[in-house]
Simulated assay, not measured.
Amino acid sequence: MTATTAPPRHIVLTGATGQIASLMVRHLTPHHRLTLTSRTPRRTLRWPGIRHLACDYDDMASIVDAFRGADALFVVTNDPTRPEHDRNIVRAAVEVSVSHIVKLSAAAVRDGAAHDLITEWQRTNEDRIKSSGIPWTMIQPRSFMSHALAWAPSIRSSGTTHALHPHSRNACIAPEDVAEVSARVLGEARHHSHSYQVTGPQALSAHEQSAVLAEVLGRPLTCQELSREEAHLTHARKYSPVMADALIASTERQLAGAKADVTDTVERLTGRPATTFAQWATRHKHRFVGERRPPRSAEPCPANGGVAGTPRLRCG
Rank of each mutant, 00 (worst) to 15 (best):
R272C: 05
A189R: 10
G316C: 01
E225C: 09
G159Q: 12
Q19H: 15
L247W: 05
T37R: 02
S105C: 01
L117R: 02
A106T: 15
V75M: 07
R287C: 04
D261C: 07
V75K: 02
S97D: 13
W47E: 08
T44L: 03
P48S: 14
G290C: 12
V198R: 12
G218E: 10
P220Y: 10
L213G: 03
I89G: 00
A54Y: 14
S146P: 15
A260I: 02
A189V: 09
Q140D: 03
T270Y: 14
E230S: 10
S132G: 11
L104P: 04
G290M: 06
T40P: 01
I63A: 03
A150N: 02
T263D: 00
V178W: 08
P273E: 04
L221E: 03
S132A: 14
H85T: 01
A231I: 05
L186Y: 15
L233Q: 05
A211G: 04
R169I: 06
A298H: 15
T263N: 02
P294D: 03
Q122Y: 01
G133Y: 14
H162D: 09
A211N: 04
T270V: 12
L217T: 09
P83M: 04
D261W: 03
G316I: 06
H167W: 12
T234D: 03
S22V: 13
L213N: 09
L73P: 01
E176Y: 14
T17L: 04
E188A: 04
N78E: 14
R39M: 07
G309V: 11
D127T: 06
A183I: 15
P220M: 14
E225S: 09
G200I: 15
H32E: 05
S250D: 02
T282K: 10
E230K: 08
V75W: 03
A206W: 02
A274H: 08
L233T: 11
V289D: 05
H32F: 08
T29N: 02
E291P: 10
L221G: 12
T4P: 04
R292T: 07
V109E: 00
H192N: 13
D177W: 15
R287E: 06
A211T: 13
H10F: 11
V178Q: 06
R68K: 06
L53P: 10
G309F: 12
L269G: 11
E176M: 13
I134D: 00
T310P: 00
C223V: 11
